[in-house]
Design a protein around this nucleic acid. Structure first.
Lengths: 229, 229
DNA sequence: GTCTATAAAGTGATAGAC
DNA sequence: GTCTATCACTTTATAGAC
């Protein structure tokens, strides 16, 4: 899977950091190469020298986050499937495997929590239009695996129903990331706000009851539609 | 509430139509005044003559739909509250009052169904950044009323829990609009896809079970936080 | 690799003729 | 109200000196 190498050195790294901060803050279209080079304290030509174009930089900024998130999602799902090899894995664990990596990689980031969530939310929102090709290829790996897992965990839910419910869940997840101004307390309620862990468990519970609702219909085949999560 | 008049005549209308089509298609930031005037077959100065600025046009494009949607949402909520004056209104009816006007006004539009939803989705997504002031003022009218109604309908749900659940629901709603390429069949399953009515009822049911989950905690006060729906 | 200077095209807005 | 021409500015990208 690792097709894109993330640089570490000097001004290339500085540009990447500056770009992601600005993208998270103002949106992908509202940031110019000049804004980025100015914050990174390089010259304007540096972006084109290092990344070929503004789009090349944009792709790398997105990939730097979605690559580890994607890998962790799939790793967690595999671990769950190994653990429950016999029957169906618990729904809550699958949802957790989908959502947690999204918020967990924040701590490894140098972005502030606020900007990190905003950036991730933007990556997903952008999906509607068309992401840079390499980013799109990366993101495509997750849906098929998770959809299958949800289908196995909820064998009695009609497959078309299930697809829609997954969509509703994904929407809630994206909204959570985008409007993270509520998800901003580093620890449990120090200043009154809930911790990330509390919010995560709220989301998982909310999604689980919605997905599981009225699990009584006859078994159908596993859904095949594509999602953008 | 009606502070903005939507014009009907000649080139002003043509510009509005062209702009909304392009905004829905490519996003608000990716469309230039020249793109709009070119599609509307007017000259470049027309936008500034009729709307003062590009932003003025953007506001009107958004208002043209959100104004009637907002009015209908509030009217439906009031009707429900009159109908169930004594006790709490059923949760499903409140959700319906919130979501249905968003999809119902489509038929009055000249935009294709697909573009209409995309435009609405974009309006909500934009929220994270900052909408034009008049649009923001308009949208602010809905949340307080509906949050109160949800609180009354679910008096036993902890108010902080409820706020989060509403957020998750709103996320699903926005996602539904944005990725409406699934919500595209005018009538019931003629070509295999579900009708809007089917999808709506799926969404309402999904949201209702999530909102209502474990309604057993003691009564708290009605939540006050602001939402962006 | 880093930088300045600049090319080439695009942006929103406006003055002024009709 | 409509239009052309144009202003002042910004955009991405690149050539070429160091």
């Amino acid at each position: 899977m690792r097709a894109v190498t993330i640089p570490e050195s000097g001004s290339k790294r500085k540009l990447l950091d500056a770009a992601e901060q600005l993208f998270a803050d103002k949106g992908f279209e509202a940031v110019s190469v000049r804004d980025i080079t100015q914050l990174a304290k390089t010259n304007v030509a540096a972006v084109n020298y290092h990344f070929g174009s503004r789009d090349g930089l944009l792709s790398l900024v997105m990939m730097r986050y979605m690559l580890p998130v994607t890998e962790e999602r799939l790793a967690r799902l595999e671990a769950i499937e190994r653990k429950w090899a016999g029957g169906g894995a618990p729904l809550e664990e699958i949802i957790d495997a989908l959502v947690r990596p999204l918020v967990a990689h924040m701590e490894k980031s140098e972005l502030s929590e606020r900007l990190f969530y905003k950036l991730l939310g933007r990556i997903f929102m952008q999906q509607a239009d068309g992401l840079p090709a390499p980013v799109e290829a990366l993101l495509r790996q997750v849906p098929e695996r998770f959809t299958r897992a949800f289908g196995k965990a909820l064998p009695t839910v009609d497959s078309e129903d299930l697809i829609w419910r997954i969509h509703f869940m994904v929407g809630g997840m994206i909204h959570l990331l985008t409007h993270q101004n509520m998800l901003h307390r580093p620890a449990r309620g120090a200043s009154g706000g809930p911790s990330m862990e509390t919010t995560l468990s709220r989301f998982i519970r909310y999604s689980a009851v919605g997905l599981r609702d009225g699990a009584e219909a006859p078994v159908k085949d596993v859904p095949q539609a594509t999602f953008d999560f």
